[in-house]
Simulated assay, not measured.
Amino acid sequence: MYKKIILLILCLIFVISCSSPSNPDNGNQGNNGDGGSTPPPITTPTEEELIAKYGIDIGQADAEISKQIEANLKAYYTEMGSYRVIFTGTTANYGDHESLYALTLKAALKVSSSMNIELDIKNINFQDGSVKTGMFSGEVVDNSQNIVISFAFPTDKIKTIEMMSFDNLYNTKEIVIPDSVITISDMAFQNSQSIEILNLGNSVQTIGEYAFMYIEGLKEVIIPASVTSIGMGAFSGGGLEKITISAPIKTMGMGVFLSSLKLTTVTYYGTSPTDINNNDAFLYCDKLTTLIVPNATNPNDNAWKTFLGGNFTDVRKE
């Protein structure tokens, strides 16, 4: 009799323990992703989902764009752990609008005085394949020295960078121009003093007058083989120390590298010192002494010493 009672009690204890909430397998729960106690895997949003969620239409009024930039910077950081501004929509005449760069910088200061921002312009509809004048012009903004803005360019939408479209940038260190760009117009990046790295892409043919004038942070530039024409004063007054010039260039305007006071070395891939008709490109480049001409037919030609108006005392093939 007692054995039956004990057995009955043990059975009840077993039933109760199986139905206890502390049992990890209770209620068909488990580790199989079917509603169990193990949380479902975290899914990373797709690029399309991020654009749909955080894209800002540039066709809106400046005040609305600014408001959305501030809100999206906070929300994107909360979700993704970085700062990013995604612009969408169609370009406009920016003569009556504040630049998207300035709007971003000022809105960012309301979030933090120190951050790295990816300014994503890949999803903008650039009408006629051109970046409009003033669209990304910068300006001096107090207390913004610790904010760095990096551009994410589209790979195949832009053919022309219009005049003064990226001028006066003080918060951008690197510019990588996409290979789709053919023309960089006059004063396009002038006085963008914070730029330290410049990649001109592989398809640029024309560089306009004063396009990169007064870029004091830029130490070196490689002018690609696609370039055939460089306008007056295009790289004048900057901080260049080294320049590489490809062979196909035939036209070079007055004072292209005028007053590049830190310039010491030029590498030129042409064969003759008369391939380019210019005698003042290096005017007032007082520290310029070295010319490297790997493809020169005659590196001992005395004309190399005054190539493009320079005063070279060290001319050699390598």
Rank of each mutant, 00 (worst) to 15 (best):
Y214M: 14
A71T: 12
T251K: 12
T244E: 09
A188G: 09
L218R: 01
A296K: 00
D167E: 13
K157Q: 08
T264D: 07
A108T: 07
L169W: 05
K317A: 14
N72H: 06
E64P: 02
G138E: 02
S246K: 11
Q190I: 10
E241N: 07
D275I: 05
T155K: 15
V140P: 01
G253K: 01
I65E: 00
T206F: 11
I149E: 00
G35W: 11
S22G: 12
I6H: 06
L103I: 13
E70K: 11
G233P: 04
S259P: 03
E209N: 12
G270D: 01
G81T: 12
V315H: 02
N146T: 13
D128S: 13
A303C: 03
N277T: 15
G134D: 02
R84E: 12
E196D: 11
I158S: 00
P40D: 10
A71Q: 06
T90M: 09
C11K: 04
I197V: 13
D57Q: 11
C18M: 13
A225I: 06
M1Y: 05
S17E: 08
E209I: 07
G35R: 11
W304F: 10
A152Y: 05
D57K: 10
S150E: 12
T228F: 02
N123M: 04
N298D: 15
E162T: 12
I195E: 01
A52S: 15
A234E: 01
I147S: 02
P178W: 08
Y284K: 07
V227K: 02
L119M: 03
K122C: 10
M232T: 14
N168T: 10
I276A: 04
A63L: 09
S37H: 14
L73W: 03
I197Y: 03
D275K: 02
Y54P: 01
T46I: 11
I65W: 00
Q190K: 09
A234L: 04
I5A: 09
G30K: 01
Y284T: 11
P299S: 14
T265I: 08
S194Q: 13
E139P: 04
Y77P: 05
S114R: 15
K157I: 09
T244Y: 09
Q193Y: 10
N23W: 06
P154I: 10
I184G: 00
T38L: 15
E318K: 08
E98T: 15
L169G: 05
A225W: 04
S150L: 09
G33A: 09
I117F: 01
E216I: 15
M115V: 14
V227A: 07
A71F: 04
N277I: 14
V315M: 07
N31R: 09
G217M: 11
G33F: 09
L258T: 02
N123L: 03
S144K: 06
T88S: 03
D120C: 08
G239T: 13
F166Q: 02
D275Q: 06
Y54M: 06
N26L: 13
K317Y: 08
I42C: 05
N191S: 14
M163S: 14
V266D: 02
S20Y: 13
M80C: 10
P248F: 06
T88N: 03
L240F: 06
S150T: 14
N93S: 12
